Simulated scan of single mutants.
Amino acid sequence: MQRHPIEAADMAAIVDGFGIDWAPLAGRTVCITGAAGFLPAYMVETMLYLNETRALGIRVLALARSRPGFERRFAHHAGRSDLVFIEQDISQPFTLDEQPDYIIHAASQASPKYYSSDPVGTLSANTLGTAALLELARRSHSRGFLYFSSSEVYGQPSRVPTAEGDYGVVDPTNVRACYAESKRMGENMCVSWHHQHGVPVKIVRPFHTYGPRMQLDDGRVYADFVAAILRGENIALKSDGLATRAFCYSADAVAGFWRVLLEGAPGAAYNIGNPDGEISMRALGQLLVGLYPEKGLTLSYVERAAGDNYMPSAVARGCPDIARAAALGWQPRTSLADGFRRTIESYL
């Protein structure tokens, strides 16, 4: 098995198209949690591609909760000596015999459907897991630690486009806050370990990100839209569709994550998103339908089914200010039409 051609092109774009200096990773051991997940898996793929094309000799310690899930995601890399799977729920106590040079903590239940069904599991990875990994970084004298936070830390943002200091209200007594509040706590843990122990932490706050291999059944609106297109079904909108979000193609976002890890300021947080990709859910549905006129699909409005666990956000508009990441030399470059077409065709 080989990478899908679209994924292979994405790897080439990440490695060669953003001017990132990969030399610091040469011969290093990188521990990454949530390794089979949508975005961290693309970071694993980046490292394996670097080994293939630049002979960097990176050793990847890939932590994931499910061996079958990991083996399905990386079936095309079976037998590689540079990819080591470690079965681990990051919210549970663990030991790691090796001392990683870099740690990327990306294990998290990011879908809103889990905020209602498993809030304890959602917050545990972002707090208990973060503390354990920061201690591992401290003991290992790691060269870099990247924490995956979220745009949800802004709550109801005080300004849109939202810069890294534009925090709004999050109600801690609302169960949906299990994600945002635990991401906030994880960030504070990072800066506290940096302040007290000198751990070289960097924080990324991804805004809405999409691309090949995203889970199409995780309950998020844009995933539902892509799944409908693939099934040849009309897109069903379960709201008035007026809320806007800024969507960033995964390869662009992953290049941003690497840029922050390798060149960002210790203790700082960086928005990673595409302000040019801001669009309403209604307009996004219309865009996707319009990409494939031969299918004859339409956009319709339906009520959510009884018992649906999805917990919608109260935020009407989400869009990042990316000036801080841009100052490092990173800019997203994929348009919505190109990105969603690539995403849909990656499943074919």
Rank of each mutant, 00 (worst) to 15 (best):
A41R: 01
Y49G: 05
I14H: 07
A35C: 05
F38W: 09
T29P: 02
F38Y: 11
I20E: 06
G17V: 14
L48D: 13
A12Y: 02
W22E: 04
E45N: 06
R59V: 08
P24G: 08
L48N: 11
D21G: 07
A36G: 11
I20M: 01
I58T: 14
V60I: 15
T53S: 15
V44M: 05
G27M: 12
A26R: 15
I32P: 11
R54W: 05
V60T: 15
G34E: 11
W22R: 01
V44T: 09
V30G: 02
G37L: 11
I20C: 02
A13C: 00
L39W: 00
T33L: 06
L25R: 00
T33N: 06
F18Y: 15
R54S: 09
A12G: 00
L50N: 03
G37F: 10
T29I: 08
R59W: 03
A35T: 13
T29L: 07
P40K: 01
T33A: 04
L25S: 01
T46M: 11
R54E: 13
A41V: 01
I58G: 12
P40H: 07
L61T: 05
R59M: 03
G57F: 03
F38M: 11
N51P: 15
G27F: 09
V60D: 08
V44A: 03
W22L: 02
R28L: 00
L61D: 01
F38C: 12
I32F: 09
A12L: 06
A23P: 14
A41M: 03
V30M: 01
F18I: 03
A64D: 14
A41F: 02
M11D: 08
R28V: 03
I58F: 10
G34H: 06
A64W: 04
A12R: 10
T46N: 08
